[in-house]
């Protein structure tokens, strides 16, 4: 499997350490915020945050983002082939929370299978199927961020479809 950047490996190590310790690890320190622009979407209370521009994405290379705020790490991903729920000119751009909805360990992206793996308890989520848990310990599929693309190619996140691990309200 090809590694997909230092951050993912770091997330794995983080998860492994926290499991070994068996105690809470702060996930807020993992990634730097990449929130470029924020405004509230009135109806849902979710912010509309610009995550990146279509031009910033490389196929099958996850881009670290945070949504709905800087303490909720996620990735933006251009999969390379059209998927249901995908946005952008090729209908292949998706974004997910990378906190495992089982116990909150940071997920690792496997670019060969296009799945997210959890180093804590081995769960696997399919990036091409809306975060469906292929196998695992969570009782929900992976929270996906709802995306919108502007005519200029800016990608905005505007909602989440499941409860993100570690918060009883997606918008804190």
């Amino acid at each position: 499997m090809k590694k997909t950047g230092k951050r993912c490996q770091r997330l794995v190590d983080e998860g492994r350490r926290s499991f070994l310790r068996g105690s809470a690890a702060s996930v807020g320190t993992i990634a730097a915020a990449t929130i470029l622009q924020t405004k509230k979407v009135e109806a849902s209370n979710f912010p509309s945050n610009k995550l990146a521009n279509v031009k910033d994405l490389k196929t099958n290379v996850p881009l670290d983002i945070n949504y709905p705020d800087e303490d909720s790490p996620g990735v933006l991903l251009k999969l390379g082939s059209k998927v249901e729920g995908g946005v952008g000119p090729d209908g292949d751009i998706v974004a997910y929370s990378v906190l495992c909805p089982h116990k909150g360990y940071p997920l690792n992206y496997n670019d060969a299978d296009k799945v997210f793996n959890c180093p804590g308890h081995y769960s696997v989520f399919d990036a091409e199927k809306g975060g469906l848990q292929v196998w695992g310990q969570a009782t929900q599929n992976l929270p996906q961020f709802k995306l919108k693309v502007s005519s200029g190619g800016d990608i905005f996140a505007e909602g989440v479809d499941e409860l993100i691990y570690g918060r009883l309200s997606n918008v804190l």
Partner: peptide, 25 residues
């Protein structure tokens, strides 16, 4: 968020293995 059974501040993100989180299920 500030007055709950856990005695935790739930207006901030909880860490992995948190006792102060539960899933919709």
């Amino acid at each position: 968020t500030t007055n709950n059974i856990f005695g935790e501040n739930l207006s901030v993100q909880q860490g992995a293995d948190s006792d102060a989180w539960y899933s919709p299920s």
